[in-house]
Each structure stands twice: as structure tokens, then as C-alpha cells.
Nucleic acid binder design. Structure first.
Length: 351
DNA sequence: AATCCGTGGCT
DNA sequence: TAGCCAAGGAT
């Protein structure tokens, strides 16, 4: 017996029925790997199914507009993944006849493809023996090998060990088995060592305190901001603007607004932001409601206001639209806006 | 090397 | 509950 055999044996018995588990189609594997980055399986499944129904091939992605793709990514987060997948699809169709490359360097050079995704796609879709190293496998290996830190030296040891252990006939299964082990048994806290197929090989288990592996690094605590946003009405239409494609929540739509500076009232901040962003003067009518939202590196309390204007736009720095409430379904918005929509729907969008 | 980039679920 | 963590990549 060995770690390889034990893990694969366990995998065959405990195999989870996931939509992207039963395919070796490179496009499907790639799509699932991108969606699964820093995102849990249960969250991905509905997005994966809907995307595949709408975009069944790499060509269909290449032909699509970014705004359409973002609509299908809406709410999934880390939107650069979607933009990069689109870029890659266009590159492959334009320069490689729509054929997804099956060698390390070519695939690795595509936007949004890093070491993990490269190894995952090449091993699962093309049966090549590259070990994929994600957060789960790092933790599993740190425990098996008894390494507390992810230093460069320890990562080299983890990687070379995985190259030694990976099953050359079933590299994709080995990678997925190791990831499942991390997700379903070797939890970050309270690992289920008694049901672990490789506990007899595990130094962390032998130590009696598996949670000591790996060492947790302390995170910076994230700041909290107070933000304001305005629904600027002109007749039965209101104003939305498109965010810069390269930045945070890039290419998504939002109500104008921004951060409240210290010493500023909510109304003062909103008037300033609307003037800066849209160049329109507004009358602020009333506050509609507030929501809390946490991003990865800061959190906000966002206050929403009904406003009125004559509709004149003097210096739009971003792409913008005047739309009616029913048209909002055509546009991709970040999650915080959906919380605002909930408030608005409860109020029937009344001014 | 450290930080930025979303969101949801869990404790 | 406030923080931690998840099938990472780009800068």
C-alpha cells in the first residue's frame, strides 16, 4: 500500500456526484476549475450548469460580449476570472483554431491560468501527470509531511513529493482525490483523522495535534467604510453606470455614489460623489434603506437614497444608461446592489 | 512578498 | 459575532 493507492481507493468509494466530475472535456474542466477558484463546490454548481447551457463551447465564449458573460457570472465574485476566461477563449479561437492547448507552457501562458489551473486541466482533461496544488492539498500535504510553514523549501518538498506520488495512469483522479480529502476529511479545523485513509502515513496525526499543521498566519483586520449611493430619477427612468473594466467589480453596473469622508454627512457625500462621477446636480429626496456588505478586504454599510434631476449629464466619466426598473435584469450588478434591489422591491421602487 | 480581488457558510 | 476559509491569479 501507499498514499497513492490509499487515496485513490478512498476516492472510488466516496466519490461525490458533481456535474464537472463526469467529464474530461477540456473546455468543461477548465470552466469548472476557474469557477472553483476560491469558491466552494455548492456555490459553483448552479453557475456552472447555467453557463454551460448558454455557452456550450470555447467558440461560443469567444463570440460572446463580455457584458453577457458577466451576467452569467453575476454574484459569483472575483470577476476578473470571467474577463480572463473570455480573453483566453478569444486567443484560442483566433490563434489556435479553437483548440485548447494540451501542453504546460502554452496553456499556462493564457490569462487567468496559473500553476494550479494548468495542472488541474492537463491532469484531468489530458491525463498528464502534473500535481495540482490548491489550498486543500497544501494543507493535506503539510500535515502528512509534518510541515508547519509554507516556506519555499517546504513547498518544493510538497511539490516533489506529489510528483512522486501522482498516479501516472489516473493523474486527474489523484488530484481530485487529494482535494476531496482536504474538503471532506482533512478539514482546516477538527480534521476527521479517524476516517482518514492515509492517517497511518500522516506525521501531523502521529503528533497527536494535527491542527498544529500548518501554522495559521494572522490576517490583517479589514476596515469598515460608510458608503452612499443614489437612485437618480428622471421621469420613470433612473441612472446606472458601468464600472471601469480593469478594477474592482470591473465591467459591472452600479448606482453612482461612494465613500463618506470623515466629517461629511451622508447627503453631503452623495451630492459630492454624484457631481464628481456624473456631473449632474441632484435633489436628494429621501433615504430608502441601508445594507451591509463584506468584500474580501473591506466591508461597507451602504445607504441608498432616492434623488431627482433634470437628466442632464455634463461629464460622464463612465459608460452610463438611463433605464426603467424592469430593464435592470439585462445588466450585471455586484452582490451589494442585489441587496439594494431587495429593499427597492419591498418598497415597490416608490419615490 | 504582500496585497488586491467577492461571496457564502461556518463557528 | 467577527473572523476564518474556500478547486488562485495578477501585480
Amino acid at each position: 500500500m501507499s498514499v497513492t493507492i490509499s487515496v485513490l481507493d478512498w476516492y472510488d468509494k466516496s466519490k461525490r456526484d458533481l456535474p464537472f466530475r463526469n467529464t474530461v472535456n477540456p473546455y468543461c474542466v477548465w470552466l469548472s476549475e476557474v469557477m472553483l477558484q476560491q469558491t466552494q463546490v455548492e456555490t459553483v454548481i448552479p453557475y456552472y450548469n447555467k453557463w454551460l447551457e448558454k455557452y456550450p463551447s470555447i467558440r461560443s465564449v469567444a463570440l460572446a460580449k463580455q457584458s453577457e458573460l458577466l451576467k452569467y457570472w453575476e454574484g459569483l465574485g472575483y470577476y476578473a476570472r470571467c474577463r480572463n476566461f473570455h480573453k483566453s477563449a478569444k486567443i484560442i479561437v483566433k490563434y489556435n483554431h479553437g483548440i485548447i492547448p494540451d501542453n504546460w507552457d502554452e496553456f499556462r501562458s493564457l490569462p487567468g491560468v496559473g500553476d494550479y489551473t494548468d495542472a488541474a486541466v492537463l491532469s484531468i482533461a489530458f491525463k498528464q501527470p502534473f500535481p495540482a496544488i490548491d489550498g486543500n492539498i497544501r494543507r493535506v500535504m503539510a500535515r502528512i509531511l509534518g510541515r508547519r510553514k509554507f516556506s519555499k523549501r517546504n513547498m518544493d518538498i510538497i511539490r516533489s513529493t506529489l510528483y512522486k506520488w501522482i498516479h501516472t495512469e489516473k493523474p486527474g483522479d489523484f488530484n481530485q482525490a487529494m482535494m476531496d480529502l482536504g474538503a471532506c476529511v482533512c478539514f482546516p479545523t477538527n480534521p476527521d483523522c479517524m476516517n482518514c485513509p492515509v492517517n497511518r502515513y500522516c506525521k501531523a496525526f502521529a503528533s497527536g495535534n494535527p491542527m498544529n499543521y500548518p501554522l495559521k498566519k494572522q490576517h490583517k483586520k479589514i476596515p469598515h467604510h460608510t458608503n452612499v449611493a443614489g437612485i437618480i430619477w428622471c421621469g420613470n427612468q433612473f441612472f446606472i453606470q458601468k464600472r471601469d473594466p480593469s478594477g474592482m467589480l470591473g465591467g459591472l453596473w452600479e448606482f453612482p455614489g461612494g465613500k463618506v469622508e470623515s466629517g461629511e454627512s451622508l447627503v453631503e457625500a452623495l451630492k459630492r460623489e454624484i457631481e464628481e462621477e456624473c456631473g449632474i446636480g441632484t435633489n436628494i429626496i429621501k433615504q430608502v434603506g441601508s445594507i451591509n456588505h463584506a468584500y474580501s478586504h473591506f466591508s461597507i454599510t451602504l445607504h441608498l437614497f432616492h434623488c431627482k434631476t433634470n437628466g442632464q449629464v455634463l461629464k460622464p466619466e463612465r459608460k452610463h444608461q438611463w433605464i426603467t426598473p424592469s430593464e435592470i435584469k439585462q445588466y450585471a450588478f455586484p452582490k451589494a446592489n442585489h441587496k439594494l434591489f431587495t429593499i427597492l422591491n419591498n418598497n415597490d421602487w416608490c419615490i
